[in-house]
């Protein structure tokens, strides 16, 4: 797993996926079976005794027992999923003491990252195995800051600061994507997340000059490249 957040997501998603597939197969299978089993085969299939006909509103049929059984079963499944969800969301929402705070600002169309030493960049660089806290904000319209491989996102709104946190597990390059439609350049509102080894990161970070911008500013205008 590339980050703690992708672990949380994939763990929970697999629970949902397993139960979802199971339920779907059982239900769809049952339905297909019934459709074949009770299809009209002409004279071989007798007319049901309670066949509805014009001139009479059919008597209600159906047992509360069936409803109760199916409700209980699905409630159990849903309760299981709900428990997993609440556990996961508490983990997502409550960051531990962070070692690195990065402020990210979304704008039409790009991302700006600001580090505690006031260094600014258009690419996000973080160390692996350390808690990174991201404060998300927008300069203009509604964006959504998502790290594709880390399976975590939060909306970037003007007038609000939202927080996510993560611990990257592997060094490498990942994709930062805008997940809320924000206008003409939405598709290309993407950048990279670079995860470095901790000592490599320290080395990189200590050489930065405050206020400097290392990478080229994101091209404004949002036309197709």
């Amino acid at each position: 797993m590339v980050s703690n957040t992708s672990e949380i997501f994939i763990g929970l998603f697999n629970q949902f996926w397993f139960l979802g597939v199971l339920v779907s197969i059982v239900v769809l299978g049952l339905m297909t079976y019934l459709m074949l089993r009770f299809r009209d085969q002409g004279a071989k299939t007798p007319d049901p005794e309670d066949a509805p006909m014009l001139g009479k509103i059919p008597e209600d049929r159906g047992k509360i027992k069936t409803v109760a059984i199916s409700l209980t079963l699905s409630s159990l499944i849903l309760a299981l999923l709900l428990g997993g969800t609440f556990g996961a969301i508490d983990a997502i929402n409550n960051p531990p003491q962070g070692t690195l705070n990065v402020e990210v600002t979304g704008f039409q169309w790009g991302w700006k990252f600001k580090y505690p030493n006031n260094y600014q960049d258009t690419v996000m660089t973080v160390p692996k195995d350390e808690v990174v806290i991201v404060k998300i904000h927008s300069d203009d319209v509604f964006h959504s800051f998502g790290i594709l491989e880390f399976k975590i996102k939060k909306d970037a709104l003007n007038g609000r600061v939202n927080t996510i946190w993560f611990v990257a597990r592997d060094a490498g390059e990942y994709n930062i994507v805008c997940y809320e439609f924000c206008g003409l350049g939405h598709t290309f509102m993407r950048t990279k997340l670079i995860v470095m080894e901790p000592n490599e990161f320290q080395d990189w970070y200590s050489k930065l000059k405050p206020g400097e911008i290392q990478h080229a500013p994101v091209q404004q205008g949002g036309q197709q490249p």
Partner: peptide
Amino acid sequence: ALGSIMLFIIGGVTGVFLGSVAIDHHLRGT
């Protein structure tokens, strides 16, 4: 009618995923 019920079942099951606030932290907007 019956085909629609089948498709609706798949739509319903996959909707439960989106009802989970934790899973939605990745699936939102996808």
